[in-house]
Structure formats: structure tokens, C-alpha cells
Design a protein around this nucleic acid. Structure first.
Length: 862
RNA sequence: GCCGGAGUGGCGGAAUGGUAGACGCGCCGGAUUCAAAAUCCGGUGAUCGUGAGGUCGUGCGGGUUCGAGUCCCGCCUCCGGUACCA
């Protein structure tokens, strides 16, 4: 017997793998391919997180499993390295983001290597590398050429005090996250990508991919396709200072047109100012102005209480010629539909609320509800609707659309919630656009041969103060010459958002060093699509949608061969941490949650880091104040002091134990709490295997002998279970099966070498270092990774007898060991011979016997 | 509000409609030890019973079925997403 020492084994094998390039991805050789991808990380200063480790371990197990199953495996890693933190650090300290990056990437790399992940490091990509972003820029040019990139004036979150534009997540309740300065919306020149042109394909092609249904649903909801009609309402000129105009509205309920009792324009609607009557003008303009200054968040925050102003003008309902008042209200959004609605308070909750508040008429046009009490949004028969009376909702829709089209006052249309993608940021640390602006105010794309447009190397980074990117302050860089005309020009100073680089990185892994092309078409055809893509659920909508959009554009220009990039996507669940919490009164006295009482609003909560907690009688206490702490399971965060650092776990138990524990905690996709004591359980399991097999040098005396029939059965069942479970990503039950098998082996006198070999092979994807070490001690040369996976021998999978559960009236009354092919009659006879079973039947009438071979024998009595 | 997902021992979790609680943590007992740690072996849903054995038990209330954690209907709670999208 000897001790399991991961601290010796793990670095040894990591060095061997690195030296031998064990996990190099190769094409060809007549092998099938498997592309297994992780969502690459942003290399933050805080290093790898146990959440990363979970997803990365899952794909690593799959990669190693597929290697052993004879696949060519592509399993790469890289860096999504553009991003705000490095830029903010640069502004504060003058350190170039690439320097910060390099340092953080070194940390991440060391951490990933210490976990023994089977990456082909020769394929590492970095989105901030000019050799990489050259191709990000190239893709932008292709989008531009196809008319999918355009410039628009779009409101952004402008913070005058900071002199910069903020991302939505940097704005909290209308103020900047840093400093709490006011933030207003201000239009700025922006690049937009026309993702809406692909809305239908993004929706339809979801059918062809193997993603969890909830994820597809999220994408469907985001795209938000709806079918309805656009209807033109003429403005009643005499009520609008003689203005001759039409207002087009979008509605999904054209069937309720007769119930429209007023109309609402979004505050940004261009007709607002023209329509307003003299009496109302000042009020209307003030309202529009106020709405414009509110941030997006403020506008939605205030949604409970509806606000609005009457313009003084009226519109004419085309179906009945009635005049209805035109209002302005911010519950109508300028960005959706036509920015104007017909309001049908009887059958729309929002309109109903508004009508109630401003005492506007409510008319019932669909029967079945009580429109005085609440809006009736369900189906029913049409009433008060002229030609539609008596129809149901769906027939009425069809009929009115036909009528509108015939009259030339509207038509059926399809609308999307999806909006075009705001594709520029006023930042330094992002991909520059390959665009120049000429003195005449026009802009031009730079020809491909001038790519990449590199970021400048400078000593200091300063906010422009104008809202433009810090790039605008770097004169040497901004001022350039149009290579085509020779005219002086200014470079575009916006940069691309972080999404850009991550939209196509999976393609670059396939051919990472290609200087001529984005990716070699032959290699692309070999490896695409990605067979399995694992990552956090926070990217379920945007990243995956944007990447799908780019991929479809690349498909259209012939750069890729598949319609969809990711055949299968799996989201790993979040890992929660334990927080230990107590309270303090205003005068500083510490209180346990038990003494907190009901009035704890006056108390402030504090947390104690997990390793500082003192345990007494299985209960956590504060190390100084001695109060009992409340254990709370919540998202890991620095501020809560509940972050588990993978380095610490590796130092204490080794990487194999960390990997195994994260997989053993529960199903991959589930949210799971981290139990600090849980790692010791899997560590114990690895130690048990080690002690079973290894002596200080070489193998233990227990290894040898002949395999019994029973042993072979257990072995083959375990192989089968682990194979099936690994294939289906059920890692927790695969590990449980290996544990059971090891428990079984401990009861054996001897364990034949061939059995140990099989065990180590199925263990290898999970605990690769320990497996390699034992494999070597078993006398093998070369990595276990490429040794074929053991096959379960079918003849050992079928037992010749089984435990038959016997029930009377569905209640278990006994179990019998019976031959595999037992007949119902024989089973009944055996069961009746058991006194504990028979006594539940005696004296009653046997009405029915249910016998399901290998499952159940059930007596139904009266 | 809407759309997803989940509720099973003290805890993490297992269970093609067929013996609920595999495996692990924790706990209890035993072996080993001068002793402890480590290790090995055994036990561990609740409850009644000396015992054999019985009863109850998968968020709640109904239903389908010989049989329901699993399927159906109606609720409750928690988590994730989304939010005036006409």
C-alpha cells in the first residue's frame, strides 16, 4: 500500500502532455471528427472561477472520451480579451490593456494547465491579437459590402460628469455605477448591424439544431415574431391646424379596429410636434422632452403608472369614420412597430389602464368579458363591429386584413421585437472599424489589403470628454490618408463591441495561423459544425444569436459550409457558494439571525468568509463575537466572501479531485451549491483506487489472479454504464458507478490486471493524471488518452437470475430470486410458497395477476 | 405579469410507469492503535413493535392505473430569463 500523491503525479503528467503534444488535433486518418468547444473566458484579473472549471471539465471529459473512442478531436481554448476592465485599468494607471491582458492570460493559462485540460494549445486564439482581429475586421467589411452595416444616430447613455458613454449595465437607476453621476440619453453616431434582415432564418433554423428547448424558446422570444397589420389613420386636418397627414399604426389585433377609441404616439414620433394644437403644444413638447431625457431603465421602471398628454388633434378610424383623440404617451415605444398604436382599451390591458386613468371611452367589440371591469384579451365573438359581427377573433382578423388591403388603408404585416444590433462602442480597447471619414462628410471602407487596422501603442489613455472613444485624442492615429484617393481622412474612432471577436472564434480554431484566409475551406468542411458547445446560460440569447447571425452571413458569402455553427449547446448550471451571515445593530452590537427578530430592517447584515467560521456542534459561529451564523446559499461573489478558488482546492486535494467533485455534485445543467466537505469524498475515492492498485513502487500484491464470473459481470456493467452516461453527459452517475465498482473490488481477494486496466481506462477522462500514472505502472508506454476505450461484453450484461419484486395490491410484500426466464406460473407458485406473501392473499379472492418479466409480480385481490 | 426550470432523508443527489432514497457527505457502531488521525468493516427516511413484521413517506389537492417521484388537471413555493413589443 502507498499513498496517493496528486501533487507529485499531476505536474509530472502535465509536463509529459505538453512535451508530447498529446492532445494535438489532427484531420484525416479516416477517423470521424468531433468538435467540442468551451465558451472562452474573458481573462479577468481575478483568475479562473469554479464555474469555469465545471464547464471546462465537462468538455474535457467528452474530448478525452472521444479520443479514446477513435475520433479526431478538436478541443481548443482561447481568450475573449477585449473588454472594459482592462481599459478602465489603463485609464487609471496608464498601463496598456495588452499588458494587463498578457499578465491575466498567463495566470489563466497556468490555471487551466494545472487542471490538466486536454487542449490543443497550438490553436490558442486571442481576440486582441492583430492577426486575429484582422479577420474580425474582414468580416465587418463583408457585412458592410452586403449592406448589413450602416450608420445611425442612436441614443446612448451619456454621462456628462464622466465625459463618457456608459453601457446599460454601468447605469443604475439613471446614475453611473461609478460615482453615481446623472446619465442622460443623447443621440450619437453609431454603427448598426442589420440582424433583423436575418430574423426569419434565425427563427426557422432553430428547428434544425439540437439545443435545449428552453434555450430555443429564449431565442424565439427575443426575436419575437408577430403577425398583424399596419393600418393608416388619417389625421382630421381641421383639428390639427390643417395638417394633412396619415399615421400608420401596427397592431396584432386588427380584429378590434372598431374598438379603437383613441390613438397614442411615442414621444419620439416626428408628427408629435406638428400635431399639437396651440393650446396643448407647450405641454406636449415638455412631455416629449422629459421622456427623451429619461434613460431606458427609468422609462421601464415607471411603467406601473401610466403617463401621457393629449395633443389636441384627432385621427379618423378608417373602418367607421369616427374621430378619435391622439395622445402622446411613453408606454408606446418608438423602436417597435411604427411607434404609434390604435388603442383598444376594451381588449388590451395597457390601453385599458390608460383609458381608465384619463377617462377615455372603453368599447366592447369582442364578447365574453366585462370590459368595465378588466380588458378582455381572450377569444370571443365580434360585436359592435359592422362587417365583422358574429365572427371569432381569427376569422375577423383575416376578413379585416382583406378589407383593409382592398380599401388601400392597410395590409397584413409581420413584426419582430428583435432590433438591429448597436455595433459600436466609444472605447479604446476594441477592434477598430476599417472605415475612414473623408472631408466631404462621406465615409469609405478600407480595402482588404490594408487590414488589420491596428490599435495604436500609446503611453497614456484619456477620456475624450466628448463621448468619443479615447482613440479620438490620438492625433497620429486618427489622421490618415485615404489609400484609394490620397485625400486626407479621419479614422473611425468607434470600436466594435466585445461580442465581435466571440462571434466567430470557433472558426479560427480550425485554422488559427492562416494568413490568407479566415479559415481554409477544406478544414472548415472537415470540422464544422461544432458538435458540442458548453457554456454559461448568461450567453443563451445574445452571444448565441449574434454568432448565429454572423455565421449565416458567412454562409451566404460561401466562407462556411453549414447554416448553423453549433449543432448542440448545453448550459452548465451555476455553482453557488455558502455565505455565513450575521447582523449588527446601529450601535454596533452583533446579533445572530436567531436574535434578529422581525424588525431587522434596522439591522445591517455582515458576512464572514467561509474559512474564518468557527464550528461548534456542527453549527457555524463568528470567530470573535461568538454569534451563531446563518448559512445562506447564493451566487459566488467577491463582496460576499464566498468565492471558492480552484487553486486552493488543487493545493489541498489535487486537480483530479476537483474535476471529479465538480462532476459528481449533480447534473451538469443544474444549479448546485458548493459543499466544502464534498471534495474529500471524491478524493477518498481516488485514494481507494490508488491503494487498491499501487505499491510504493509498481503494483500492489492484490493485482493478479483470475477473474470470476461475478467480477466480469460487475466490470462489464460498469463499463456499459460509464460509457452510456459519459456519452449522455451524465457524469455524476458515471462516477457513482465507478465508486460502486471500486467498493465491490475491495471485497475481492485479488483483482486481475486486465480488470484494473479497464477500470483505469474508463476513469481516465475524469481523473486523467491518476489514470496515466496507474496506466504507466501497469506497464504501458504512451498516453492512455489514445488507447481504445474498453467495450462492454454483452454476454456479461445479462444475468441468469434477478430479484423479482412481489406486490399484493401494489404494496411490496417480498422479493424473490428467480431465473431470468421464469414463467408467470412458476413465479406465482414461488411467491405463494412464501409465507410473508401468501398471508396477504389468504382468505381473499384473487382477481388478477400482473406479471411483467424482470420487473414485477403483482396480485390483485378483492 | 409572461416564458422556462425545479421542489425526493440532516445535506448534494439516484430512480425506461414496476423493490423510492443508488453513490457521496455527515452521523452512529465495530476493527486497528498506547492514543488519536488516517484506514478497513457494518449501520443510518419517519414511526409503531421485544421481535417477526406493520403503517406512513418524493411541495399541496384531485385524477388515470393492478401499480405514480415519474402521466393528466388545479394550486403553492423557489430559481433563471424577460418586461408597456401594441
Amino acid at each position: 500500500m502507498s499513498e496517493y500523491r496528486p501533487e507529485e503525479i499531476e505536474p509530472k503528467w502535465q509536463a509529459v502532455w505538453e512535451r508530447d503534444k498529446t492532445f494535438r488535433s489532427l484531420e484525416g486518418g479516416g477517423k470521424p471528427k468531433f468538435y467540442v468547444l468551451d465558451m472562452f473566458p474573458y481573462p479577468s484579473g481575478s483568475g479562473l472561477h469554479v464555474g469555469h472549471v465545471e464547464g471546462y471539465t465537462a468538455t474535457d471529459i467528452v474530448a478525452r472520451f472521444k479520443f479514446a473512442r477513435g475520433f479526431n478531436v478538436l478541443h481548443p481554448m482561447g481568450w475573449d480579451a477585449f473588454g472594459l476592465p482592462a481599459e478602465q485599468y489603463a485609464l487609471e494607471t496608464g498601463t496598456h490593456p495588452s499588458v494587463t491582458n498578457e499578465k491575466n492570460i498567463a495566470t489563466f493559462t497556468a490555471q487551466l494547465k494545472a487542471l490538466g485540460f486536454a487542449y490543443d494549445w497550438d490553436r490558442e486564439v486571442n481576440t486582441t491579437d492583430a492577426h486575429y482581429y484582422k479577420w474580425t475586421q474582414w468580416i465587418f467589411l463583408q457585412l458592410y459590402k452586403r449592406g448589413l452595416a450602416y450608420i445611425a444616430e442612436v441614443p446612448v447613455n451619456w454621462c456628462p460628469a464622466l465625459g463618457t458613454v456608459l453601457a446599460n449595465e454601468e447605469v443604475i437607476e439613471g446614475r453611473s455605477e461609478r460615482g453615481g453621476h446623472p446619465v442622460i440619453r443623447r443621440p450619437m453616431r453609431q454603427w448598426m448591424l442589420k440582424i433583423t434582415a436575418y430574423a426569419d432564418r434565425l427563427l426557422e433554423d432553430l428547428e434544425s439544431i439540437d439545443w435545449p428547448e428552453h434555450l430555443k424558446d429564449m431565442q424565439r422570444n427575443w426575436i419575437g415574431r408577430s403577425r398583424g397589420a399596419e393600418v393608416d389613420f388619417a389625421v382630421a386636418a381641421e383639428t390639427a391646424g390643417g395638417l394633412d397627414a396619415k399615421i400608420r399604426v401596427y397592431t396584432t389585433r386588427p380584429d378590434t379596429l372598431f374598438g379603437a377609441t383613441y390613438m397614442v404616439l411615442a414621444p419620439e414620433h416626428p408628427l408629435v410636434a406638428e400635431l399639437a394644437s396651440d393650446a396643448q403644444r407647450a405641454e406636449v413638447l415638455a412631455y416629449s422632452q422629459a421622456a427623451a431625457n429619461k434613460s431606458e431603465l427609468q422609462r421601464t421602471d415607471l411603467q406601473k403608472d401610466k403617463s401621457g398628454v393629449f395633443t389636441g388633434a384627432y385621427a379618423i378610424n378608417p373602418v367607421n369614420g369616427k374621430q378619435i383623440p391622439i395622445w402622446v404617451a411613453d408606454y408606446v415605444l418608438w423602436g417597435y412597430g411604427t411607434g404609434a398604436i390604435m388603442a383598444v382599451p376594451g381588449h388590451d390591458e395597457r390601453d385599458w389602464e390608460f383609458a381608465r386613468k384619463f377617462e377615455l371611452p372603453i368599447v366592447e367589440v369582442i364578447s365574453g368579458g366585462e370590459v368595465d371591469v378588466a380588458a378582455h384579451t381572450g377569444d370571443g365573438l365580434l360585436v359592435n363591429s359592422g362587417l365583422l359581427d358574429g365572427l371569432n377573433v381569427s376569422d375577423a382578423k383575416a376578413k379585416i386584413i382583406a378589407w383593409l388591403e382592398e380599401q388601400g388603408v392597410g395590409q397584413g404585416t409581420i413584426n419582430y421585437k428583435l432590433r438591429d444590433w448597436l455595433f459600436s462602442r466609444q472605447r479604446f480597447w476594441g477592434e477598430p472599424f476599417p472605415i475612414i471619414h473623408l472631408e466631404d462628410g462621406s465615409h469609405a471602407p478600407l480595402p482588404e489589403q490594408f487590414l488589420p487596422i491596428q490599435l495604436p501603442q500609446v503611453e497614456r489613455y484619456e477620456q475624450s470628454g466628448t463621448g468619443e472613444s479615447p482613440l479620438a485624442t490620438i492625433e497620429d492615429w486618427v489622421n490618415t490618408v485615404d489609400p484609394v484617393s490620397g485625400q486626407p481622412a479621419r479614422r473611425e474612432t468607434n470600436t466594435m463591441p466585445q461580442w465581435a471577436g466571440s462571434c466567430w472564434y470557433y472558426l479560427r480554431y480550425i485554422d488559427p495561423h492562416n494568413a490568407e484566409k479566415l479559415v481554409d475551406p477544406e478544414k472548415e468542411r472537415y470540422w464544422m459544425p461544432v458538435d458540442l458547445y458548453v457554456g454559461g446560460a448568461e450567453h443563451a440569447v445574445l452571444h448565441l444569436l449574434y454568432a448565429r447571425f454572423w455565421h449565416k452571413v458567412l454562409f451566404d458569402i460561401g466562407a462556411v459550409s453549414t447554416k448553423e455553427p453549433f449543432q448542440r449547446v448545453v448550459n452548465q448550471g451555476m455553482i453557488l457558494g455558502l455565505t455565513y451571515q450575521y447582523y449588527r445593530t446601529q450601535d454596533g452590537q452583533a446579533l445572530s439571525y436567531k436574535e434578529r427578530g422581525a424588525n431587522h430592517a434596522e439591522l445591517t447584515s455582515f458576512t464572514v468568509p467561509g474559512d474564518a467560521v468557527v464550528w461548534k456542534d456542527e453549527k457555524p459561529y463568528h470567530p470573535e463575537f461568538g454569534v451563531e451564523l446563518e448559512e445562506i446559499t447564493e451566487k459566488m461573489s467577491k463582496s460576499r466572501g464566498n468565492v471558492v478558488n480552484p487553486d486552493d482546492v488543487i493545493a489541498q486535494y489535487g486537480a483530479d479531485s476537483l474535476r471529479l467533485y465538480e462532476m459528481f455534485m449533480g447534473p451538469l445543467e443544474q444549479t448546485k451549491p458548493w459543499n466544502p466537505r464534498g471534495v474529500s469524498g471524491v478524493h477518498r475515492f481516488l485514494s481507494r483506487i490508488w491503494r487498491l492498485v499501487c505499491e510504493e513502487q509498481g503494483l500492489s500484491a492484490k493485482v493478479g489472479g483470475e477473474a470470476s464470473e461475478e467480477l466480469l459481470r460487475e466490470l462489464n456493467k460498469t463499463i456499459k454504464k460509464v460509457t452510456d452516461d459519459t456519452e449522455a453527459l451524465r457524469f455524476n452517475t458515471a462516477i457513482a458507478a465507478m465508486m460502486e465498482f471500486v467498493n465491490f473490488l475491495y471485497k475481492q481477494e485479488t483483482v486481475p490486471k486486465a480488470v484494473v486496466e479497464s477500470l483505469v481506462q474508463i476513469l481516465a477522462p475524469y481523473a486523467p493524471h491518476a489514470a496515466e500514472e496507474i496506466w504507466q505502472r501497469l506497464g504501458h508506454v504512451g498516453s492512455i488518452t489514445h488507447h481504445p476505450w474498453p467495450a462492454a461484453d454483452a454476454k456479461y450484461l445479462v444475468d441468469d437470475s434477478y430479484q423479482l419484486a412481489v406486490q399484493v395490491m401494489g404494496k411490496l410484500r417480498g422479493t424473490l430470486t428467480v431465473p431470468i426466464d421464469i414463467t408467470q406460473q412458476a413465479a406465482v407458485e414461488l411467491a405463494m410458497a412464501e409465507p410473508d406473501i401468501a398471508r396477504h392473499i389468504e382468505g381473499k379472492e384473487l382477481r388478477r395477476v400482473i406479471f411483467v418479466p424482470k420487473r414485477i409480480l403483482n396480485f390483485v385481490v378483492s
